[in-house]
Every structure is written in C-alpha cells, then in structure tokens.
C-alpha cells in the first residue's frame, strides 16, 4: 500500500510541474493544431477512394503521430533523472524509502497521462471536425479510438526510453542530445536502413521473410502497421496494404504492447546504475 502512496506522491508532484510550466497546454495545442491541419489537408482525395472523411483523417494523423508522439514523449522524459541530478536533488530523493522503480513509475504515470491528454484532445478535435465535415462509419470511429490508444502506448515506449537516456547521460544537456539521436534513429534512420536493405536484396529472402519482422520490432513501425493493417479502409487510404499483409495480425500489436514494459525495464536497469 505504501508503495502506491509513494508512486502517487511522485506522480502528483510531476503532474503539478507539467501543469505549472505550461507543458501540458503547449503539447495539447501542438497536437490539436497539427492533427486538424493534417486531416483537413488530407481530405481532398476522399471521393476517389470511396471512404469517409474520418478514415482519411485517421490515416493522415497516423503518419503525423509516428513523428510527433515520440518527439513529445522524449521532450517530456529526457530530464527526469538528469534534471534531478543536476539540481542536486537526486540523492535526497533516493534517501527516502522509495525504490528507484517507484520513483520512475511515479514520473511515468504523470508523463504518460499528460501525453494521453494531448493525444486524446488533439485527435479527438481533428476527428470530430472530420466527422462534422465528411461523416464517419463504425469502422472509422473504431480506427480513431485505436489511434488514440496506440498513441498512448507509443508515447509510453518513448517516455521509458527517455528515462534510459536520462539515466545514462549524466547531465540534462547530454540527455537532450541523446534523445534527439534516439528519435532520429527510431523514426527516420531505421526505416531508411530497412529501405536500403530491401533495395539491395531485391526480391531475396530478407525482403520476403525477415523484413516485415524487423520492421515490426521498431515500436514506431509497429504503431504504423497496427493502425493501418487494423483497418482495411485506412490501409487503402494510406496506400499501404502490401507491407502489413505479410505478417500475422498479432505481430504489430504484440510489439507495441511489449515495448513499454521493455523500455521501462531498461530504464530501471539504467537508473539503478546512477550514483548521485
């Protein structure tokens, strides 16, 4: 019981910080602005594909989320350990009867909750707008809900990875640099490297058997695959039916559901090695 109390104490303080320094408001605003802009911009070809506007909107927002959510998650988390160390407050925090896992969990609760608010509000407003302008069906509403849910999972992954870097970096500045590098690797370079491998391999063994699995192992790609393969209409709208078909349906969800635990486990291991 007291572990819960300690986690709640940390979460409450972190949540107050996020509210007070406007992080929550700014992140939510960013999500709303980008989501609305993208779903309106993507609405032009609706008629030709024969799908409702919300479907197109979700496909556009999925592409946006792959870039934006890891970025916001890293921005919120990179300072979690390094910042305390820089302030000289880490030793004090660790002198209390709270385990390192409890401290990280408390921070994660607040950070993931803040990201969830930003995602749900941002996608909700844009989705609502799409529904008002172009209608929606049960399938596309379900796709919107899945986008929100998977966004929270994707955010949790990168919050955890941000803690790993924050623990390893030793200073806030170094943690910020490492976070930028991590974002680049997961969101941009990984896909580029895969693309290069596929081009070099032609129609060889890698392209046919290994490629889809290697792709799903990246949480950002798993997020994309889950959202797109999960709905035929979204896949049509995104023009991305082929890649998803090669995998069993559970692969992408399994990857995205496992990743937050993996990231958190790594974060705990890294934090344990920090000597204040």
């Amino acid at each position: 019981m007291s572990a819960v109390q300690r986690i709640r104490a940390v979460a409450r303080a972190e949540a107050a910080v996020l509210r007070r320094n406007r992080w929550l408001a700014v992140a939510t605003l960013i999500m709303v602005v980008f989501a609305v802009a993208l779903s309106l911009a993507g609405s032009a070809p609706t008629g030709t594909l024969g799908v409702d506007m919300l479907t197109v909107s979700v496909a556009s927002m999925t592409t946006l989320a792959v870039y934006l959510i890891p970025l916001l998650a890293l921005l919120i988390s990179f300072d979690a350990v390094a910042g305390e160390a820089d302030r000289g407050a880490l030793g004090l925090l660790l002198s209390y009867p709270a385990s390192r896992a409890e401290i990280l969990l408390g921070k994660a609760v607040a950070h993931v909750a803040a990201l969830s608010v930003a995602c749900v509000v941002g996608f909700g407003v844009a989705g609502g707008l799409a529904v008002a302008l172009g209608g929606a069906g049960a399938d596309s509403l379900w796709a919107l809900a899945r986008l929100m849910g998977t966004s929270v999972l994707l955010g949790a992954v990168f919050v955890g990875l941000g803690y790993v870097l924050s623990s390893l970096a030793g200073s806030s500045a170094a943690a910020a640099g490492l976070s930028a590098a991590l974002w680049l690797v997961f969101v941009v370079l990984y896909d580029l490297a895969l693309l290069a491998a596929v081009v070099l391999d032609g129609d060889g063994g890698f392209t046919r058997s290994a490629f889809p699995w290697v792709m799903t192992a990246n949480p950002a790609d798993a997020f994309r695959l889950w959202n797109i393969a999960g709905s035929d209409t979204v896949a049509v709208a995104a023009g991305m039916t082929g890649a998803a078909d090669a995998l069993p349906r559970w692969a992408a969800p399994a990857s995205l559901i496992l990743w937050p635990s993996v990231a958190f486990w790594l974060a705990r291991a890294a934090f344990r090695r920090v000597e204040p």
Partner: peptide, 15 residues
C-alpha cells in the same frame, strides 16, 4: 515550478 508546500507534500508522501 512547485510551491514549498507541494515539495514538502511530495517528501511526506515518500516518507
């Protein structure tokens, strides 16, 4: 960003 009372509440919770 926190107030003195909020910080003290955090430590009271941890303790």
């Amino acid at each position: 960003a926190l107030t003195g009372r909020e910080v003290l509440a955090l430590f009271a919770g941890l303790a």
